[in-house]
Every structure is written in structure tokens, then in C-alpha cells.
Design a protein around this nucleic acid. Structure first.
Lengths: 258, 258
DNA sequence: TGCTCCTCTCCCGTCCAGCGGAAAGCTGGG
DNA sequence: CCCAGCTTTCCGCTGGACGGGAGAGGAGCA
């Protein structure tokens, strides 16, 4: 009878941490049984581990019994140097763009075959919140993603072209169409998405480049989302390009010292 | 010979998590031995736990061998609902203030006897970075802190007055002086710090209030930091008050639905 | 160059704390 | 009222955590 036969192999610690993997931006509040199921942990074990995680402050218990991420992880997350240099350098430029245009501006980097949004200044007009800081989207699904893809190594491009899952009803799913778009982006130095018009916004994105010995190196993409009733997208290109060049210049300078 | 005699009592999990406690905004990169010392963990044990934490992604190893907070914790931290509602409601107001004044604007809440900065928009002129989002400062040491203190329950005020440690050379350390300042803040509805002039900036802070049955309830403080060469602080009061009222109103409205 | 000091890594015997099935609380809906 | 689903407590078994020791790898100094 009674339990016993300890864990199936993984270490205690990674088992506890695995619990945290159940949490996600699309599932920020979870009940005990949901967590147990999502993390593949026996209910009782999950219960105990949750107790410890809560005790430490990694999680907090809501009045309704569900768990959510606690202060401690917020504190620690804030000091994570994820693209720290880029974010610090870029922040003033994003704010400047926001001040002059009043629109939503965001900055993303490539992480594998995803675009990772690392900074964002929200505009007043409510646009869909898909580019939340920390969120990841497939490279082929957004303007900044395509810009990053246009500058990515060939093997990455091929991997993306090989698996074009639709994200919105308007996502390109034809590899030939996307390849043509990428060529166009490389030629014009900016991407312009009309696909997302249906979401109530149009967007524009440009590459951020750092000058290096051996040619420029794209490290990020700068995007702006404009409400649909303003169609003066093209007039924004110079401002965006200037900001992108400014970020690249400052980044190169700050790296010289290091 | 050989080790053995397992842990002194605490659970495995909390021991591993305790390792993370060694990290701090003032010490974001640590070596193995620093971590072992800071967390009071035997060197060998710390080494193993660090391996597990790194394997999961809570920490990453830098080329020089030091550890720092990794992507995973960043991701999780971003979905922590720490003052989520307040931050979402306040963000547009902070941006508006920044757009019109170009100065650094920040928002803080009270957490015990500390002011916790939860949102910030940095101005172009570089002011000291003490109000980084996530950082905590004693209530008596800053403008927003004093505003929060002025609205805090009596027991909190007494606790603070009882232990006035100096933070900068200009921090008030005399309880009587601070008590008079607090009375002044309650009367005028805003705080104005001249103490921090030496740091190269002057600041202004107002309470953010939510209307409730049973009188207004201060929940946060809104502050602005102005470079010293602009002395038109008083002209900012109306704009700040309007923003603070706006935040309070929106917050009350969004809570009605809930 | 040889020495010392410091930090990191691997090894391994002991022993205890994690494990999780079972069953008892606790809600809330029908 | 009864039942279904979720949460919490209980507890004996066992396998993995523990950490001292030794040695490798470097940095600094004479």
C-alpha cells in the first residue's frame, strides 16, 4: 500500500522547476489540478511542490485557490540581462518615435525561428496586444519578423519556408510568396504589412544594424503599428530609419568600450 | 572520508530556490563561490544546484564562468501580475506626461516601509537610475515615498519615524522634521524634494487616489524628476494632479466591472 | 620558472527527505 | 439530499540528495 517508489528519474529541483513551466502568458492563473496535468506531475507531488514554491514566493495563491507568478520571480526577472544593452540603448529612440507619432512602437530580436519582442511603447489607440514584451511570434507572421527573417542565415530561412503555419487568417502560407516578400524587403530595406489590416492596424518595420568590420549585421527589427484610418505609412519610413540607424550607432559605440 | 549526512533540515526545493536569493539588482553576476557564500550553501552543493538551475534555464553561464539570471525567469517574471492592473491603467498617463515634459516619470506603491517602483518612463537627460522598475527604497528617502507615507496608516508612519536611516547625505533623519513634512504634504497634496538636488535633479510627487465608498484611498504615488536647471516645478503640479486623478478614475472604473 | 593560493569539477558512501497511492475534507450543482 | 470534482492530509518505502575530499586548472608573485 502507501506510496513510496520515489521519482522516476529527474532531479527533485528540476521537477519543482518543471511546475513553473506550466505557467505561460496564455495561462497565467492555474489551479492545482491544471498544473499537475500540464506538468505531468502526480497530483499529490504537485501539491507539495506548489506549497514550497509558494512559500518561497515564486508563486502566490489567489483567493479563489488558483496560483499565479509571484513577486520574487518578478524581481529576479527584472534583473535578467536579456538583451539588456539593446533595450537600454533603444528605449530613448522608441520613446522619441512614440512622442512624435503617438503610435505603438516595438523592438524585436530573432530567437531561432521566432521573433522575440524585447521592448515596446504602447500607443493611445488600442491595437491588439500581440507584441507584448516577452512574447514570441513566428518570423513569417509579422512585419518585424519578416525583417528579421530577411537578414537571417539561409538555413533559418529554409526552415521557416518549410513550415508555414497560418497564425491569422491572413498569414502567408505560400513559400514562393514569402520568398518574394523577403527579396522585396532586402531591396527596399523595410517591410510593410497589409495582411494585418484586418486586425485594425497597419505596420511598418525596418532592420536595426550595427556596423561591424566585415559589413553591417542586423541584430533587431524596429516596428511601428498605425491605426488603419491613417494611411500615411510611407511618410514614417524616414523617421523609423533614422531611429534604427541611431540605435545601431549607439550600440556599436557602447560595444567599442567593451 | 566520503560525505553523507544530508541536508540540515530545509527542503531540497527551497534550498535550490535559496540559491536564486543570492542574486540581486546590485549583484546580477556572481561566481560559484560568491553564490555559495551568499546563500550559505556548501560549495559542492551550490555547484550541483547551479547546474540544475542552469540546465532548466533559470540561470545562464557567462563566458567568464559567472552566473546570471536567464531567459526563463525573465519570461515568467513578465507574466507576474504584480500591480498589473495599476500598471496597465497608468502606462498611457505616464507616457502623456513624458510626451509633454520630456522628463522622467515614475509610479510607485507602498510595500511595507518601502516604496516599490512599478512603472517608469525615462527622460532624455540622464538622471540617477535609482527608481528602476522593481527597485525598493525607504519611504522617507524620496518624494514618492513621502507621499505614500503621508497616506499610510499610523502604525506604518511610526515604524518609519522610529528608524530613519540616512540613504543619501541629504536624507531627513530627524523624526520631527519628517513629521512636519508629512503634515505639509497632506495639506498641499503634493511633495517636492529639494534634498535630492545634489543628485542633479529635483522631483515632484502626488498621490494617486481611488474613490471608494468610505472616502478616497491612496494606492500609489506619481513622481516626476526634473533636471536642476529647470526650476519651473510648480507649473508641473496641475499636469501631475490631472494625470493622478485620471489614473485613479480609470482604476476605479476598471474595478467596478470586476 | 616554480611556488602558492584560489576556484571549479568530479567522485562516491551514507542516510534521510521526497515520493505518491489512498482516503478523507470541501464545495457547489442538480 | 447525493454525487462529482477538486483539494488537502496521511504515512511507509526507497532511491536520490548530500557534501567532504581530492585533484585539475589558472592567476598572481617572486
Amino acid at each position: 500500500m502507501a506510496g513510496g517508489s520515489a521519482s522516476p528519474g529527474r532531479s527533485v529541483t528540476s521537477r519543482a522547476l518543471g511546475i513553473l513551466d506550466a505557467f505561460d502568458s496564455s495561462a497565467p492563473r492555474l489551479s492545482l489540478s491544471e498544473i499537475a496535468e500540464r506538468s505531468g506531475t502526480p497530483l499529490t507531488t504537485a501539491h507539495r511542490l506548489l506549497g514550497e514554491l509558494t512559500g518561497w514566493g515564486a508563486l502566490v495563491r489567489r483567493p479563489d485557490g488558483r496560483y499565479e507568478i509571484g513577486r520574487k520571480l518578478w524581481d529576479l526577472g527584472l534583473i535578467a540581462p536579456v538583451q539588456l544593452e539593446l533595450r537600454q540603448v533603444a528605449a530613448p529612440f522608441l520613446l522619441d518615435l512614440h512622442t512624435t507619432t503617438r503610435d505603438t512602437v516595438h523592438l524585436a530580436v530573432r530567437e531561432g525561428v521566432s521573433a522575440l519582442y524585447v521592448e515596446r511603447v504602447s500607443g493611445r489607440e488600442s491595437v491588439p496586444v500581440v507584441s507584448q514584451v516577452g512574447s514570441r511570434l513566428p518570423l513569417h507572421a509579422t512585419g518585424v519578423g519578416k525583417v528579421l527573417l530577411a537578414a537571417a542565415p539561409d538555413d533559418v530561412v529554409e526552415r521557416v519556408l518549410g513550415a508555414l503555419r497560418p497564425v491569422t487568417p491572413h498569414t502567408v502560407t505560400d513559400p514562393a510568396v514569402l520568398a518574394r516578400e523577403l527579396a522585396e524587403i532586402r531591396r527596399r530595406r523595410y517591410a510593410r504589412t497589409s495582411q494585418e489590416m484586418s486586425l485594425g492596424a497597419a505596420s511598418l518595420a525596418v532592420p536595426v544594424q550595427v556596423e561591424r568590420a566585415g559589413g553591417p549585421l542586423a541584430v533587431a527589427a524596429l516596428g511601428i503599428v498605425v491605426p488603419p484610418h491613417r494611411r500615411d505609412l510611407s511618410r514614417l519610413v524616414p523617421a523609423l530609419e533614422m531611429a534604427a540607424r541611431g540605435i545601431g550607432r549607439e550600440l556599436a559605440r557602447s560595444r567599442e568600450f567593451h
